[in-house]
Computed example of a mutant assay.
Amino acid sequence: MSLRSFRFDPSLTREFIAFGGSLYAGGARRVPPFRREIIRQLSPDFYFYQRAGNDHRRFLAYRAGRVAGRIAAMVNAEIRDGDRLPVGLVGFYECVDDDGVAAELLEAAREWLRTEHGVRRIRGPMNFDFWHGYRFLTKGFDREPYYGEPDNPAYYPEQFELGGFAPLRAWNSIEINGREKLEALIAPWRKRHELLLERGYRFVPATRLDLRKEWPALHGLIDRSFDGFPDYTPIPFTEFKALLSGVGFALAADVSGFVYDQAGRAVSFGVIFRDLAGAVRAMNGRITPLGALRFLSRLRKRRRFNFFAAGSLPEEEARGTGVGRAGFFAMIDESLRRGYSDFIFAQMPKDQPIQAFFRRLKIEPQREYTLYEREA
């Protein structure tokens, strides 16, 4: 076996990208990422590579002359440990089911991070930051995947653990099918919603907004809402727009939106996506005329929705208005009114307070995701 390391070498980058597709060839459940998005993220002009203090190195492993694995070692200058020292990251990980190949890749990444940047801790999988791909799926491999879900072979977590990594944080997803449980879930927040309406708060769906004009407000609101979240880092507005443009086709604008306070200030938001896993799978990672036809042919075959993200301004939370719960009620209540009753509440931290409401209804998580860490 041999290893090659590089940064932007065009030929090796093509091999790096191609292996991510060939490894999953024929996988019936796979929802492949769009190839052009991967190319964008690995191109020299991607925003991550322009920021002072950021660095990366890519590695390809070869077995019998063919690519058998890949990994990228990264330093994001804004992700630091408790002593304010940079934390190393490993991402874009793909590997055959061979623990020896995995060990060589992980060790090469560790050695580069330790010797070139002196990091003391390494986390992964994480592609650059909180905003792009991170975490492994660790439970729920038998479930139908949804668009945007971490997707990996079941042996990846074990390869990381054999490489010295241990679980750092965990998230889960909960799927609910049917009106009855959704109505029971939101029932405790109905009065809070009514109270805020009486106080002059407004719950405005995205269909009533010029979203392109609202993007700066949403960018700022998300930035403030997630400030302090583990490993959260802000991204430039240009990259935020690029990410939104890439998923805008899936936005359920009729049930996503903002909450405005009495002064007309956006204080909370919620984002729900239509789960287009089947339609995106049909495109096989490529945006072509044929792929578009396949996408459209499957677009209406599944009416499952993904409650993707929500947040509120910290000062609003500190006031105890309950705007987050009221906004959650408004979104699910409007969804039920429109006949949407199949939901995935996606990638929630296990220690998030809303988990208690699912437990109250005896609804157990069906999927789990894990971020790992090891000493360098």
Rank of each mutant, 00 (worst) to 15 (best):
K350I: 15
G324N: 12
M348R: 07
F308G: 02
F328E: 08
G311S: 13
E317H: 06
A330L: 06
G320L: 09
G339V: 04
D333E: 13
V323D: 05
G311V: 09
T321W: 07
S335E: 09
F343Y: 14
R325Y: 13
D342M: 03
S335R: 04
A330Y: 00
R338T: 02
D333V: 00
F345W: 08
G320R: 09
L313Y: 12
A330G: 08
F345V: 04
D342I: 03
I344C: 11
Y340G: 00
T321H: 09
S335V: 04
S312R: 10
A330N: 11
E315V: 08
S335C: 14
S341T: 10
A309G: 07
E317F: 10
L336W: 01
T321P: 00
G322I: 06
Q347T: 14
D342C: 06
P349R: 08
E316I: 12
F328A: 06
I344D: 08
G324Q: 12
M331L: 15
M348N: 14
M331K: 10
K350C: 14
E317L: 13
L313W: 13
F329N: 07
S341A: 13
F308H: 12
R338I: 03
K350V: 15
A330V: 02
F328P: 01
Y340E: 01
G322M: 04
G320D: 10
N306P: 04
F308L: 13
I344P: 02
G327E: 09
F308P: 06
K350F: 13
E315W: 13
M348F: 05
M348Q: 12
S335A: 15
F329I: 10
P314Q: 08
Y340A: 02
R338C: 01
A330I: 03
R319G: 03
F343T: 03
E334S: 12
R337A: 01
E315N: 05
R337L: 00
P314W: 14
S341D: 15
I344Y: 03
N306E: 12
E315I: 05
Q347A: 14
V323L: 05
D333F: 01
D342E: 14
R319E: 11
L336M: 04
A309L: 15
